[in-house]
Amino acid sequence: MTTFHTILLLLAAVLAVFWEAAFPGTSRWLRAQVDLLPALMVYASLCLGLPATALLAVCGGVMFDSLSANPLGVSILPLFATGFLIHLRRELILRDQPFAQFVLGLAASALAPLLTVLWLLTAGRTPLLGWGSLWQWLVMSVAGGIATPIIFLMFGWCERLLGHRRAVESSFRSDREIRRGPS
């Protein structure tokens, strides 16, 4: 993990939260707002370390709550729990496979809002819930699943464009060249 990756991740979180609040396109068409933070958590937990995952959960959660009517800090723990669970099993996950990324994004996008709503209900708040919430949950999960491979692609592209390239070592060394025949 580098500072560059972490900054890039936090920048993506800022843009994701702003996009969710400023452009209600999906909300108008699908009657459900898509949340991209769980998909970013999947990327952070698989490709970066636990500190970056925690930082994303704290910053992303606080930014999300600041633009929402959620009590401040409520979104942090559900996001972090999602990332932490994936991080614990990261060695067993085929992180380069788009299908695995989709499934993880789907699961994370389903789990994070569920935990948040459960917390709100436990805290005595009254969020708007009904049969329509099931549709919203489905849309959020599927959209999160679709967004995850795209996020992996975009971060890979950014890394190739902006990050430094690893020097490729060749096995050929000119000082150990065997010369045959008369010199």
Partner: peptide, 14 residues
Amino acid sequence: VILRDPANWWRTVQ
């Protein structure tokens, strides 16, 4: 109206 609530379970705008 500059921003809308990003959560599906509240109805607020900024």
